[in-house]
Design a protein around this nucleic acid. Structure first.
Length: 554
RNA sequence: GGCUCUAUGGUCAAGUGGUUAAGACUCCGCCCUCUCACGGCGGCUACCCGGGUUCGAAUCCCGGUAGAGUCACCA
């Protein structure tokens, strides 16, 4: 077989040589140890927590080592294109603090290793495919879908491994004449790798490949024997081929990807070998899991788990810092300890390492996120909190008139957001925007309503309690003066001034001062539970306090 | 089914031959307290199973089991 002739036949328009591209994209001039990483999303516009998790690893690895982190759009699947997806991806990641140094941006490519969109790189892939054909390492395959199905059925019957390999790869044996004839009939074909692998040998004779993985240590698996498609009938490369060519040419040093790629690693290794290149360092991350309906762990799926989309967290109003902090706790097992020891340091100061990464799938834990979020929001100033709420409302609650009222008076809202946060043991009321809004809604007349029942201990005295309270109310009282008055009212009406007295002798009293103040609380806030009443009254102002209580008495 | 990965409490996890098997979240109880939150104290609950190796195994070896991933002209 004249492979040179075959390659010319298949790729008549490819004139550039592989040397041309090697020279065009030389080794990067970076400091010792600098890592080059990349994110290669397919442009469906959908990213979930798992993608962010991986992106975070890429970002940390690159930026901790003075390296480069670039964005490459992997749009080799023409069936899944979504308009404007790149924009969404870039914006979502930026929101969560992930920024690229190089690659696709909304204003075109940045960097010397482009083009960074795979669909624009057809000529490059074809050039390297041509080289493989020329060296007899790849070949055209004319198998139709039907023929492939038949092969699979046969394989199933005799319990052979499925796929196109070895004797099943019938197009390997085509003569030049047969190929020329099929080509002249314009029959569609793909280009397949001609694998040297052979898995039909006895176990101990099968060649095993050993690849170092920065997270998992040495990977040891059987070599590839599949004649994997490298160029589809359309001339577009498959992921496997694009990955190998791009990451070589773009001089990627570390490939971070999900563990679902582990099984195809032998294919990539063989491709690197056939092309004569050094593979990058692989970092196969554990997948984020969730509990499905049957109670089993399952990989996060973009189709089934829309609630794990990044948009969900933005929509709920989680602060990006909280999400980052959470991700880091499941990413690096020593992060939590570090955080406890260094509560005020920036996340960037933490030394992230692949060695400390878990390689089993972590279950997403909303409780933990919420807990972390409380601490994160506590450290954010009231001014910043206001801006955060404002931006969130602009983006996700633009139709909500309540939000307009909430945001109308900046000073007022800031005071509300800061309730109880300055004490030595500060309140941690805030978790995420949506929750915050619900939490503080009673401060605003349009949302204020009586939500809770009066305590049954004081039900009969509601009217008289509120009347006495209004009568004695002095807005200039300090907190202890204010509460002393409530004690007086309680005692006058037969309630214990201290809850402990009531607990000791429940028969002597109707209830205790707590029940009395709960009545006031409901009159003022409509709820049985709230932060300190005195503090809230100071924020509401005297007029509003009197108005609400009077209205309640009507 | 083949191949691969994983296996410590409800969850996330320390742990690399000798520990009373850390810690965080959740849950429960108590304390603080006008409610809630915060905080403090305490509690429940764990080394998948079976064989080895060893004076000694969560840790090493072998064999099971379970869960997950993958086996496309998707990525």
């Amino acid at each position: 077989m004249d492979y040179k002739k075959l390659s010319e036949l298949l790729f008549p328009n490819i004139e550039k040589t592989t040397e041309y591209y090697e020279a065009l994209y030389p080794e990067r001039n970076l400091p010792e140890g600098a890592k080059v990483t990349r994110l290669g999303p397919s442009p469906t516009g959908f990213i979930h927590l798992g993608n962010l998790y991986g992106a975070f690893v890429d970002e940390r690895l690159a930026h901790q080592s003075e390296g480069v982190f670039f964005l490459r759009i992997e749009d080799t699947d023409d069936k899944r294109l979504v308009e404007g997806a790149e924009e969404i991806i870039i914006n979502s990641l930026r929101f969560f603090g992930i920024n690229f140094d190089e690659g696709v941006t909304s204003k075109g490519d940045i960097g010397a290793y482009g083009d960074y969109t795979q669909s624009h790189r057809g000529e490059i892939y074809q050039c390297f495919a041509k080289k493989l054909v020329e060296e007899g390492k790849a070949y055209p395959c004319f198998l139709t879908e039907e023929e492939i199905n038949n092969i699979r059925n046969n394989q199933e019957e005799i319990k052979a491994n499925p796929g196109i390999y070895g004797k099943w790869a019938t197009s390997r044996n085509l003569t030049m004449e047969e190929i020329e004839e099929k080509l002249s009939k314009k029959l569609p074909y793909v280009v397949r790798l001609k694998s040297d692998g052979d898995l039909s040998k006895s176990d101990e004779n099968i060649r095993r490949i050993k690849v170092k993985d920065a997270i998992r240590g040495v990977l040891d698996m059987p070599e590839n024997d599949q004649d994997t498609v490298i160029l589809k009938a359309t001339g577009i490369p498959t992921y496997h081929f694009a990955h190998v060519v791009d990451d070589h040419l773009m001089r990627t040093t570390h490939v971070v990807r999900g563990a679902e790629w582990l099984p195809s690693l032998p294919i990539h290794v063989e491709l690197f070998e056939k092309l004569g290149w050094q593979p990058p360092v692989y970092c196969h991350t554990a997948q984020l899991m969730k509990l499905d309906e049957e109670g089993n762990k399952r990989k996060l799926s973009k189709r089934k788990d829309p609630e794990l989309s990044l948009d969900y967290y933005r929509n709920e109003g989680y602060h990006p810092k909280a999400v980052r902090e959470y991700l880091l706790t499941i990413l690096n097992s020593n992060f939590e300890e570090w955080r406890i020891a260094n509560p005020d340091l920036d996340i960037e100061e933490f030394e992230f390492t692949t060695e400390k990464m878990s390689n089993s799938g972590a279950l997403f834990d909303l409780n933990k996120l919420n807990d972390i979020s409380k601490d994160v929001l506590l450290k954010i100033s009231k001014e910043e909190l206001y801006d955060f709420l404002k931006n969130w409302a602009d983006e996700f609650r633009s139709e909500d008139e309540n939000m307009v009222e909430i945001l109308k008076d900046r000073a007022y809202l800031e005071k509300i957001l800061d309730i109880g946060r300055k004490e030595a043991k500060p309140r941690k009321d805030h978790i995420y925007a949506k929750q915050m809004v619900e939490n503080i809604s009673y401060f605003f007349d349009s949302m204020f309503k009586i939500e809770d029942e009066m305590p049954k201990e004081a039900e009969a005295d509601v009217k008289v309690i509120l009347e006495k309270y209004l009568e004695s109310y002095d807005h200039t009282d300090d907190q202890s003066q204010w509460f002393d008055k409530i004690r007086v009212i309680a005692e006058e009406l037969g309630y214990a001034a201290k809850p402990k007295d009531f607990k000791k002798n429940p028969d002597m009293y109707k209830g205790h001062v707590g029940h009395v103040s709960t009545v006031i609380r409901i009159g003022l806030m409509g709820r049985q539970q709230s932060p300190d009443v005195w503090e809230i009254q100071q924020i509401l102002g005297e007029a509003k306090v009197r108005e609400r209580l009077s209205n309640f008495l009507k």
